[in-house]
Design a protein around this nucleic acid. Sequence first.
DNA 1: CAGTATCCGATGCGATACTG
DNA 2: CAGTATCGCATCGGATACTG
Lengths: 236, 236
Amino acid sequence: MADRGYGQFCPVAMASEVLGTRWTMLVVRELLCGSSRFNELRRGLPRISPALLSKRLNELEELGVVERRCDGERGSPTYYLTEAGEELRPVIMSMGSWGQRWLETQLSLKNLDPSLLMWDMRRNLNPTPLPSRRVTIQFLYQGLTRGQREWWLIVDKAAQHGVVDLCMTDPGHDVDLYVVTELRTMTAIWMGITTVREASDAGRLRLTGTPELASRMEHWLGLSPFAQETKQVTVR
Amino acid sequence: MADRGYGQFCPVAMASEVLGTRWTMLVVRELLCGSSRFNELRRGLPRISPALLSKRLNELEELGVVERRCDGERGSPTYYLTEAGEELRPVIMSMGSWGQRWLETQLSLKNLDPSLLMWDMRRNLNPTPLPSRRVTIQFLYQGLTRGQREWWLIVDKAAQHGVVDLCMTDPGHDVDLYVVTELRTMTAIWMGITTVREASDAGRLRLTGTPELASRMEHWLGLSPFAQETKQVTVR
DNA sequence: CAGTATCCGATGCGATACTG
DNA sequence: CAGTATCGCATCGGATACTG
């Protein structure tokens, strides 16, 4: 195993060598989605070890895909994609579209994870159709253990630190909308496999609270970037 | 290491799991380029072991990306991409384009390989501008060892088995055009890093024989599919 | 030609603990 | 918070030889 590489000058081979190592594409995906701090990245990649994430970031920096910035003197470092990294977007998007179209849904729905789902929802939520006051939405996933069951999204357009907050513990505010469903259903909605309306009609999703929030859920709830890709594989 | 997977429902993660294993993307690339027989694939992937190629083909078949056909009763099997496999083309192309734009040329030119280059040239050669008679073109790579140095491309539009033949031993025909250069130069031309004209003018490529063949070389010599991507990384 | 079978070595990477 | 350090194992895949 003298050579880890493919020994080919073909650009596809060269790119595969670099992008094919475990976790690399997902680190880039997280950066493309806007994460920039170490522990923010870890949150989107729960199963990566800190050592490996650090290694990947260094490799990507060495490659010219990632730029590490040490803001201020004292501030903790942040990571951003360079132009080369930004140009990986079409690669990631085409991979994701292909995955959505051709990989078994069952396989995806075996990898249910409320923290990943909520984290994704947090960053894709669209505050525009929401009122200007602070809005609190509680998600309650039936059948999950305590500690995984309850989530709060707090949207405050006037907030200075960031518009959408995600909590796992009761923030204490009055709740404007309760969303009660199974994690599987909510994930299927997020992935575009079903819709809020379908799930509601089937009684698998229950919305209680401010009627305007409930009726406009399809508008403020962002979906996965791949949700509009049509599945080509039957859900078995 | 209970789980080899990423444990994420995200389609990018799902696709990475499948496409990220070593050699997989390159097997798909070969199939996209038109190879369909086992040893034809091996030719485009010289460093893969037969065992691993077999394994990858089985995995891809299982995934629904590859279809194995056993033509006739007796015939040896062939492999084709399914619709799902064909739809990997944008993934491969975007990876290749990115590689061409952003990965060090030096890295590519470290992976020089005359058999891969000639094999690629064989399948991308454009016979249209060539005369209707049989044409033999000999490539002579200076500085390579005997057995790697001499290559013959035989183009015969009237041939029944295939228009372009590649030989490593003298086919015995009269040679219509001799191409004398270094492997590095020819590879750089193939990759679009330099041109036939540039290399000729610099004396790094010498064409002797039928003047029409020589002058039209830029037209019949196909280039890498990524040759028109502009390098963004300086050649150091 | 089209693969299987077998073996074994390197190393990637996961787990955990620890530090400035 | 943002990593480094260390350890050890599983497993991937490379090499080689063999078969219908």
